[in-house]
Design a protein around this nucleic acid. Structure first.
Lengths: 366, 366
DNA sequence: CTGTTAGCGCATTCAG
DNA sequence: CTGAATGCGCTAACAG
């Protein structure tokens, strides 16, 4: 018995209430001057008809859609899922809906995504750029009307708010702990898919001037690793840096396996990773190799996921506030849209925390 | 130097090309009859201006938005994140965008979500209903124009397509394996938040007539557990059924702890769980209790997540094709919208798979 | 094959 | 404080 009548329109309400459409619109929209009695009559009529405003029509005029676009590399990753939840909770609380687009960490796909969101007139966009140096399409998105907030990544090429963690310091600290514990040959499993070979060289050559905001997270974390070594006056062995070809557990797993196979030559006694994907892959490879953590190898994971306390001994981790990253990004974005926020683009850093568990063993100095 | 000019409209293109707006629209929209030369000229003009159609205006007329709404209980759960990825990939491939709403597994919130999606004129909705018996708001959503597909849950009260796994059988099979291995006191950690106490009683009392489509997944899985016992002529001990109060790891953890504390009385030698949340919580509780799997307790998890192979010994699991659940739901939905699919609502069952690992130990019969 | 006319549902001038 | 008129950008009849 579904009702075949079309949805009632403002016009219908107006007729029933005995007012013009414009008065009706004012009564319902709480704008302009309106008599209290009128408002009540109109509301009664609207309720009676079950009237609901058509957001499409409204958007045509106002130019606003009460929608924010979220573009992410991989919806199914624990990191993004959690961050998205943060975004969603805040957006919902403030009356905004969310349009999501998945890009597979591909710049071309990201360009399409951005075009799509612009076409659909989203009021703002939260994005975790595939490459922080190819952001022309993101810059083009910014207008006085349309806000842009970067999530998990910041870009020197963009005057936009960003919400990230200080992962360079976080990693410098974590690797420093390993160094303090006597480790001299620490492996790292990272992603350098986008960056060119030259970048890796220049990263090595210029630890001081490397700018956070010109590097993707995994490179920033590698920079932290490198700096920790320099602070401790320990030379870097390039053979200990495993770069994965893709953002996948399998890719991380095989990169780690290579690291493990060369243990006889490198003398590696510890491994660190740069995100949840590399953490899972690396830990799996260590297991497959029949090595025990921390007896045979010390290990630090990035991101405090469930499994790190389920395995035994539990894994020490660098924790980042993933939900808060998302919720904060949404808050900043909506503040811009409200006009509550009018400062230049700001780089917001959330705190990481090192959680010590049982995956690190001190090593005897020779 | 962002361009301050507004986006060019169809009108602008028409003027530049020297045609009327309707001809221009036809040329660009590939509909109606149009001369090839005209089309080319119009296209050239459109390119020159960088014209992009305004989907809002289009939607006002066509009533279509090329958008599908996805309403889920918890975006941050691994299950939903993965399924959402499946939905997203298919939708993107077929030119649809996704509006997501999170409901926290709350029926009232789901009602709002549905209203919101209707207001926004989404072409279709994929939903994992909070309660498969309170679905009036979902029924109201269905029109010849607007399709509805249920994900992970089916409902007897709704004539809609659903994409699920046959979890009753999956669980009957898994528990059957435990029973075959000699276990006689098997604990189960499940969620019965929504169902009333009476339901639990009636489930127990009427194993045959309990209809899959009147139960939420966790209850369906419990039903599988009960049926396995009956098939093996093993009595059921209600003390072995731990019900969590909420969908959270902590809740599952403490429910499991209660089960563990009563081991002396119940003689429990194995535990099964009903989804990834209960799996993580239960496994954590077992660990905390200082029990070894499978030496002290056998264990079967639901969902083949990374951690089940990271822990040692690896955990045997009931695997369900999560990504496919999402992608399939999207396909079915879009087929409906295309008119490719015109049959009555269908219940699509995807296969689960039992993955045998090392978390089950045979038990000596007395 | 192309142009004219109308209007989707609403917000927003401007008069009254 | 209220109403009439206008138009957001586009598609859909209908003529021609």
């Amino acid at each position: 018995m579904s009702d075949v009548r079309k949805q009632p329109t403002l016009h219908d309400v107006a007729r029933l209430a005995g007012f013009s459409t414009s008065t009706t619109a004012r009564a319902l929209g709480n704008y302009g001057r309106i008599a209290e009695t009128t408002r009540e009559k109109v509301r009664a009529a609207a309720d009676e008809l079950g009237y609901r405003a058509n957001p499409l029509a409204r958007s045509m005029i106002t130019g606003k859609t009460k929608t924010i676009g979220v573009v992410c590399a991989d919806l199914s990753s624990p990191f993004f899922a959690e961050a998205l939840r943060g975004i969603s909770d805040v957006a919902k609380g403030r009356g905004y809906d969310i349009l999501i687009v998945n890009t597979d960490e591909d710049v071309a796909s990201e360009r399409d995504a951005v075009a799509l969101l612009r076409d659909r007139h989203v009021d703002g966009v939260i994005v975790s750029p595939a490459d922080v140096r190819q952001v022309g399409h993101l810059a083009a998105l910014q207008t006085p009307e349309r806000a842009l907030v970067l999530l998990d990544r910041s870009s020197a090429a963009l005057d936009a708010d960003s919400v990230t963690v200080d992962d360079v310091s976080a990693m410098t600290d974590a690797v420093g702990r390993l160094l303090d514990a006597g480790h001299r040959h620490i492996g790292i499993v990272t992603e350098l898919r986008i960056e060119r070979e030259a970048d890796w060289q220049s990263l090595l050559g210029d630890l001081d001037h490397s700018e956070r905001r010109e590097l993707n997270p995994s490179s920033r974390r590698l920079l932290g690793y490198l700096r920790a070594h320099r602070e401790h006056d320990i030379p870097i062995d390039p053979a200990l840096v495993a770069r994965t070809g893709a953002t996948s557990v399998d890719s991380a797993r095989s990169a780690t396996t290579r690291l493990l196979d060369q243990r006889a030559q490198t003398g590696m006694t510890a491994v660190v990773t740069v995100d949840n994907t590399t953490s899972v892959g690396a830990y799996g490879a260590i297991r497959d190799h029949g090595l025990r953590v921390p007896d045979d190898l010390s290990f630090i994971a990035f991101d405090n996921l469930d499994w790190t306390t389920l395995v035994q001994p539990a894994v020490s981790v660098i924790e980042q506030p993933v939900y808060a990253l998302g919720s904060r990004a949404a808050e900043v974005l909506l503040d811009r849209l409200d006009g509550t926020r009018d400062t230049p683009g700001e780089e917001i850093l959330l705190d990481t925390r090192f959680i010590e568990r049982e995956s690190i063993r001190a090593v005897q100095q020779v």
